[in-house]
Design a protein around this nucleic acid. Structure first.
Lengths: 190, 190
DNA sequence: TTTGCAGTGAACAGGTCTGTTCATTCCTTC
DNA sequence: GAAGGAATGAACAGACCTGTTCACTGCAAA
């Protein structure tokens, strides 16, 4: 019963881990309860439905991911003011690479959520789309060297390659997916 | 009660559609029963477990997909003996494009199956890996213009881009995913 | 000391899931 | 027409699911 952190935070952390390890539908409320030590009454006080819990987990994940990337990019530009667009994108790939090799990689949360909540108008699916669009916009924002007109298309293509790499690594049919992504993207900038 | 085709075939068809529309875990045996008109007794005679049914559905899908692609490529080479590697790969993209726009697109069956059956040693997950490897090999086989040493890496990169496009289209954050994939791959051949 | 909030634990409701069983019916083939 | 395989329908077992309810326990602040 870890009470240092408010119960809600701990709950969200455990739920995130279980959703990753087992999937969203496969993870029952009871399991989250048991593993977090939070009673069902408390859970349903914070999150009126399981869907609300899933959404909150994804929202936090999205925010943490985007904030982390923005921070990394700002750090690079500060340390190396002459950094190129390719340098910035390679930084993103570095992060993905570390994630995949870090032992806590279960594919992209949003792609998996969109897969399980397939209906195009499902709130969880919609959130997955929103996250991907936001990430794509972030990439577009990092393409300072390119003419304005080309940034959107280039960001789409980079995003597509990154999601391909994450998918290939998650399914498990390529063990050098990030290296391949890096090579492809270098070619796009050539 | 369509009895023109053996019950088993009809069952597999209905199961395939439902798995696509709802997901593997979300689709209950009862639903497949109701929609196919096949009784539970018969179902469990053909497929001792639900997992066996899922595996058989995926096996058929894999075979149909690979055979279809091999056929298309052979057709192209017959009709246009001077076709280039890029021509051949563009044919694959044409097929994906038609699939996505054909109204029966629910993402890649194998990526979704790997997402739901996350354990790396799950038979269903293993089958998804096997399919992806087979498809990648098929692409490698279509790269006749390239030196032998380069084919594998090129096939990996093309595969990664194709899965990226399928994922982007399925999640729904790009509505021109195949055009982007085409542009990227053209660049790889340039 | 009293009030009120946060949380617990356990039972319960109503539903769904996979898989089993059994008596019965249909249909083909001899 | 008889025999036998293929399929049906319906009930059942046992498990798990989400969500509700209620009586109870700490604890902190007024």
């Amino acid at each position: 019963m870890p009470a240092m952190q408010p119960r809600k935070e701990h709950l969200l952390g455990v739920a995130y881990d279980l959703f990753n390890a087992l999937g969203y539908h496969q993870t029952g409320i009871d399991r989250i309860m048991a593993q977090s030590g939070v009673s069902k009454t408390t859970m349903y006080k914070y999150f009126p439905t399981k869907e609300a819990l899933v959404l909150e987990v994804l929202k936090r994940r999205s925010k943490a991911l985007l904030d982390g990337m923005v921070g990394s990019l700002a750090g690079l530009d500060a340390a190396q003011p002459a950094a190129s667009d390719l340098d910035r994108v390679n930084l993103l790939i570095d992060a993905i690479d570390a994630w995949i090799d870090g032992g806590k990689f279960f594919g992209c949360n949003f792609i998996r959520a969109a897969g399980e909540y397939g209906a195009a108008d499902d709130p969880i699916h919609l959130h997955a789309i929103a996250h991907k669009r936001a990430f794509q916009k972030l990439i577009g924002g990092a393409l300072a060297d390119l003419p304005l007109d080309d940034r959107h298309r280039m960001a789409e293509q980079i995003m597509l390659v990154l999601d391909g790499a994450i998918t290939a690594a998650h399914v498990g049919y390529q063990n050098n997916a990030t290296a391949n992504a890096r090579a492809i993207i270098a070619r796009l900038f050539a």
